[in-house]
C-alpha cells in the first residue's frame, strides 16, 4: 500500500514536459523488486524505469511481456511495456529468480 502511494507520488512528480508514456519506477534492492506488483492501465504503453541499487547485475525478464534486459549493478535502465490486454504478467530477475519476482497487473 505504501508502495502504491509511492508510485502515485512518482507519477504525479513527472511533469508533463512531453506527452510521453506514463512512467513507473521499479527498484531492485537485495535482489528484490520494489514494488513487486505494478498496476498499469490497459491498452496503454508505459515506461518502466528500473533502478538497480545492488552492486550485482540483474536481468529483467518476462516471457509474458517478451522483455529481457540486463541491468548492470548500481545503474538504471528503461523498459517500455504495453499496450497490453487486461491480465497478470509476471516478471522476474533472471539472475536471482528465487527472490526477484514481481508482476505487472493490467487493469
Amino acid at each position: 500500500m505504501r508502495y502504491a502511494l509511492l508510485i502515485i507520488a512518482l507519477c504525479l512528480s513527472i511533469t508533463p514536459v512531453f506527452a510521453g508514456p506514463p512512467v513507473f519506477t521499479l527498484e531492485i534492492k537485495e535482489h528484490l523488486f520494489f514494488p513487486d506488483e505494478i498496476t498499469i492501465p490497459a491498452n496503454t504503453k508505459v515506461k518502466l524505469h528500473v533502478k538497480n541499487l545492488d552492486a550485482t547485475a540483474e536481468e529483467f525478464e518476462s516471457y509474458e511481456l517478451n522483455r529481457e534486459k540486463v541491468i548492470a549493478g548500481n545503474s538504471e535502465a528503461i523498459i517500455f511495456i504495453g499496450p497490453l490486454d487486461k491480465g497478470v504478467y509476471p516478471f522476474f530477475g533472471e539472475f536471482f529468480p528465487k527472490t526477484a519476482q514481481g508482476k505487472v497487473i493490467v487493469e
Binding site: K29, E30, L32, F33, F34, D36, K98, T99, Q101
Partner: peptide, 9 residues
C-alpha cells in the same frame, strides 16, 4: 504465500 518484507522475500 510468498511476500516481500524488510528487504527479504
Amino acid at each position: 504465500h510468498e511476500v516481500n518484507h524488510a528487504s527479504y522475500r
